[in-house]
Write a protein that binds this DNA or RNA. Structure first.
Lengths: 116, 116
DNA sequence: CATCACGGTATCCTTTTTGACACTATGGGC
DNA sequence: GCCCATAGTGTCAAAAAGGATACCGTGATG
């Protein structure tokens, strides 16, 4: 996933593209959604998303962390304890997620939408 | 690009994911952006996005059309004339695009953001 | 007669993304 | 002594996405 999709200076969509590049990735949006409601541990996330493989979840979490959208806190315990929560930056994405959710709720009603 | 990312009924993020799945794809967002300002012909789009290959542009346009976000109008002329414009559904995505643009403008200021 | 513009297709190849599966350390419970 | 849970990692392979390049028909233009 290219962190920067376009380097052409004159492209107006640049900011949008760059924003998109942070939230595309198969499970990132769900992760952000779940974390909107509060901090979660790794396996709590897994249980909430049974279809994600461990490797994928780790991978997506690492990217979200690298992009500064989530915070990873490790507690030095022996059954390891790692908590994930939104950073301020991640929380600021809420309007974007909500705009997408509203659009989806309105335009992709119950079935697969008229043109999908 | 899977048109439907998740079929799990209980996943709240579903609408968001499905919305995302319509606008991810390397050039779709730019296309939608350009079309927000008005109808464009195929080669006008190409000239506005010099780095997109013809094949890719065609491909993205076809998908946007299949998803009902844009309308393709062919005029039976001999230098062929094909116009693309947003459908009502496509135009209704404007709040989503704008939310992303605002977030990007605010959080990805000038350089590559602090954590990218 | 050759070339250009238009709006594409077709084919092949590379890169990126995703998935399957096995493996790790540690300490506690049985 | 064996298995469980936690939070991963590593390797390999498949699938998807994207890119390079060449080609198509038509009519006007030179």
């Amino acid at each position: 996933m290219p962190r920067v999709s376009s380097r052409i200076p004159g492209v107006e969509g640049c900011a949008v593209e760059r924003t998109l590049s942070l939230i595309e990735g198969k499970w990132k949006i769900i992760v952000l959604y779940k974390l909107l409601k509060g901090t979660l541990r790794f396996n709590e996330l897994r249980r909430l998303m049974p279809l994600v493989t461990q490797r994928m979840l780790t991978h997506q979490l690492r990217e979200l962390e690298a992009d500064g959208l989530i915070v990873r806190t490790v507690y030095a315990q022996v059954p390891p304890r790692v908590e994930y929560s939104l950073s301020a930056r991640g929380r600021s994405l809420e309007p974007v997620l909500m705009a997408m959710k509203e659009w989806g709720d309105t335009n992709l009603s119950s079935q697969g939408a008229q043109a999908a």
